[in-house]
Design a protein around this nucleic acid. Structure first.
Lengths: 310, 310
DNA sequence: CTTCCGCACAACGCATGGTTGTGCGGCGTC
DNA sequence: GACGCCGCACAACCATGCGTTGTGCGGAAG
């Protein structure tokens, strides 16, 4: 199916005749005739009943019309999504299932008129570069790893603190606990595969491990959350951390346990990063929404020492 | 923008490299390269960062991907809407603002999974022909005008009765009434422009006028509901009928009055017409929904004498 | 009956998109 | 460090397709 043919079809349906549609499209009537014939050949049905005084849509043509309009709108949105200068608000989230994603879904529900695009960049360096180059408008990150000051032209606003849960299999020593104090985790093996050295995640968990004497192993490649959950479920000696807001496809029959951590509650601090001079009209709305909607950390929560104040 | 190029883009994004996408699409790697280059030229942005080991999407490419998928889905839906044998349920309604349209919107809300297409055919003859030829699956009509028996292979089920309201301007003699008995309408001029002689609408209003001694004028072409409303609002001697469920763009500042009619309440009986042997899987669901949801006529309502029983 | 209007068919030329062939650059290997 | 491999881009060539002009046909209005 050719988009130009579909556009021509809509023009003919609106004009009621090939001739006028042709002049509207600045082509000849014969070209319109060919395009419509080609579209009819592609679809295998007749779209217009040719009358002596013009043209009227057949039943198939009537049914096709709204779908054709929707198709053209989808094409327009697709093109607009990468149009420099006037594209949808583009927000980078740290992964697709977490507090940032949840907040963006809620923002979308609250402001359905705001066009949004969600991207996921590899690390904070590429996020900073993308924001400075203008290719993304905002990024949810745990921004200030130690020794990495933010460039002058970027602004970070701490917007949401995500408490961590412990994830264990049914055979784990802590599987029956309703909550686990931090002190009890010392000595247990925490497995977080795929942590890239130097990433903000790695910095966070290093600080957490150092503070409370945990053993965090990040060996091995990340084979995806499914493989991680399988291993956790089958290995009594292993547990892992997972954000409270993280939605995952919960495998049935694995007996996985999700256990809150306390004394103190470790929270992952998300900040919203954006360029000081970004003029995108939807950015203030996002900030206002986050300021109103984002949950504060519970009293006595633990965050890395370099976390900016709220 | 070329749909084939978009399809190729999605294939490359999924494969992670041009080469494999090319074999998936059964074309050469060079053709893929050309298509992507063309798409990038059309959009004015770079979609892929070419790496030595393959390809990864740029930020623009990431943002574009979901729109591209949606575009392809829209194309698929558009093609499916006219696919013989496996197309969406296609229902003909008598106009876009009335009881039938309301019911179909509600059915769509109740069964969002059922693909629907709404068409509007000119008259009952074309509706019958379309149903018999299989190009529509069901039609809301006041089916049995006198002397026009339904073909053997069609079935009609009376599904909803739509009471009529009187529509007047602010200067009309009945403008202040909260309800108007039928007997009081005798002698008043009722204007219904564009009633086609022989149509089911015309037959209905002829029967109504004959029964209660009304004067219904259907002279003049129908210039659309806007023009009708303007005239009604400005002409104290004229009124018109309008279905209770009819939603219209209510012009502000016109002082239009919508007045129920009583003793008896004239109702327009909608039946659902369909082919006895239509195997469309969604048709039973529509019937079941209408049987449960459709309102019955108020007691003592008037319907034309040829109306089928419920 | 004639005229006009609107769509379809035919012939032609050019642009587009496909193919094969080749070059270039980075990475892994010996 | 040189070589080979892998993956993408460029060049040349060719076919298909699309738009153009010119023409034919059929129905409605006068």
């Amino acid at each position: 199916m050719d988009l130009e043919a579909v556009r021509t079809y809509v023009a003919v349906a609106e004009a009621g005749q090939f001739q006028m549609a042709a002049t509207d499209l600045a082509i000849t009537q014969q070209a319109v005739s060919k395009r419509i014939a080609g579209l009819e050949r592609d679809l295998g049905v007749r779209l217009f009943a040719r009358t002596p005084r013009g043209t009227e849509p057949t039943v198939d043509g009537q049914a096709f019309l709204p779908h054709a309009r929707e198709l053209l709108r989808a094409a327009e949105r697709a093109a607009a999504s990468v149009r420099p200068g006037a594209r949808p608000l583009r927000v980078d989230v740290i992964n697709s299932r977490g507090a940032a994603s949840r907040l963006m879904r809620e923002f979308h529900r609250a402001h359905p008129g705001v066009e949004l695009d969600i991207v996921m960049l590899l690390d904070i360096d590429s996020a900073v570069a993308a924001i400075r180059s203008g290719s993304v408008d905002a990024s949810f990150r745990a921004v200030t790893a130690p020794g990495r000051p933010l460039p002058e032209d970027l602004t970070a606003t701490r917007v949401v603190d995500e408490p961590l849960h412990l994830l264990t299999g049914p055979g784990h020593a802590l599987a029956a606990a309703r909550a686990v104090p931090m002190a009890e985790l010392a000595g247990h093996r925490i497995w977080m595969p795929g942590l890239l050295a130097g990433s903000e995640w790695a910095a966070y968990y290093e600080a957490l491990a150092g503070e409370f004497g945990l053993t965090i192993e990040s060996t091995g490649p990340n084979f995806g959350s499914d493989a991680l959950l399988d291993t956790i479920a089958d290995t009594p000696a292993l547990a892992t951390f997972m954000g409270e807001d993280t939605r995952l496809v919960w495998p049935t029959g694995h007996g996985l346990r999700r256990i809150p951590v306390t004394d103190p509650v470790p929270v992952y601090p998300h900040s919203l990063l954006h360029h000081r001079d970004n003029p995108h009209p939807a950015l203030p709305a996002l900030h206002a929404y986050l300021a109103a909607a984002a949950a504060t950390a519970p009293a006595g929560a633990w965050v890395p020492p370099w976390t900016p104040m709220r």
